[in-house]
Amino acid sequence: MSNGIAYPVFRTPDPALALSVARRLMEFGRVEEFSRVSAHAEFHSLPELHRVARELPAGCFRAQEVCGEFDDVPLAEQPALVVGVEGADLPSDPASYEGRLPVEFDLYDGAVDSIEDAFTAAIGPNRGEINWRNLSWPDVPAQGLYSEHTHAEVTLLFNTRTRDFDEQTGDHTVLVHVRSVNIDGRQRMEPQAQWLAARTGLTVLGPGQR
């Protein structure tokens, strides 16, 4: 089983500009009727959670649970907020969220251009990402690069610089994904990320992340 690795190629405090750049890179590998887009975010405050739920009501919102908390509880008997609810069904009682923040948000496998603008407008100061997958990077024989489909993706990170959302930042980062081929501690496919970035006037800004 192969793995992918993602390289940062653009960073800006302007979310609209970050989306524009990410789209330009995505369009280079877009496959009509096949490429898909998803979005993910996490919310650490109830005001932000409910604001975004009003703006993106079709998303799935899911609260945290203590590890093993519902191991022996049938799914039908678990709290709806833990299983996952749409924005309109989020509880209004603050007590429902005690010990359950952050609440995660997901929109899965939409058509390209179906959710990107609304998500970018709604994300505000919260950490999140848009991910485009099922792209296709071309063969570049002169550079010794091969076509890539399985790991051809573009990700736009909001207010964080890693896909783990482990640090809040005031900027937004575009990542290009390629296949991970690690030989003697060196990533052999980093030149593909560099080549892809250059095609859209960008450059690799730092090491790859999984």
Rank of each mutant, 00 (worst) to 15 (best):
N126H: 02
R127D: 05
R127P: 05
G128S: 06
E129D: 13
E129R: 15
E129K: 12
E129H: 07
E129Y: 00
I130A: 10
N131V: 12
R133L: 07
N134K: 12
N134E: 11
S136M: 09
W137M: 06
P138K: 10
P138M: 09
P138L: 09
V140L: 14
P141E: 02
Q143E: 15
Q143C: 11
Q143A: 15
G144N: 11
G144A: 11
G144D: 12
L145W: 10
L145C: 09
H149W: 13
T150A: 15
A152Q: 06
V154G: 05
T155A: 13
L156A: 10
T160R: 04
T160V: 11
R161W: 05
D164F: 05
D164I: 00
D164K: 10
F165V: 05
D166A: 15
Q168F: 03
Q168V: 12
T169L: 08
G170V: 03
D171H: 10
D171R: 07
D171A: 03
D171S: 13
H172L: 02
H172V: 11
H172R: 10
H172Y: 04
V174R: 05
V174N: 01
V174I: 09
L175S: 04
L175N: 02
L175P: 01
V176A: 01
H177K: 03
H177F: 07
H177Y: 04
H177N: 09
H177S: 11
R179V: 06
R179H: 08
S180W: 02
S180R: 07
S180D: 12
V181P: 01
V181C: 04
V181E: 10
N182Q: 13
N182T: 12
N182W: 09
I183L: 12
I183M: 06
I183T: 10
D184E: 13
R188G: 01
R188K: 02
M189E: 14
M189C: 08
M189W: 04
E190N: 03
P191C: 08
Q192V: 01
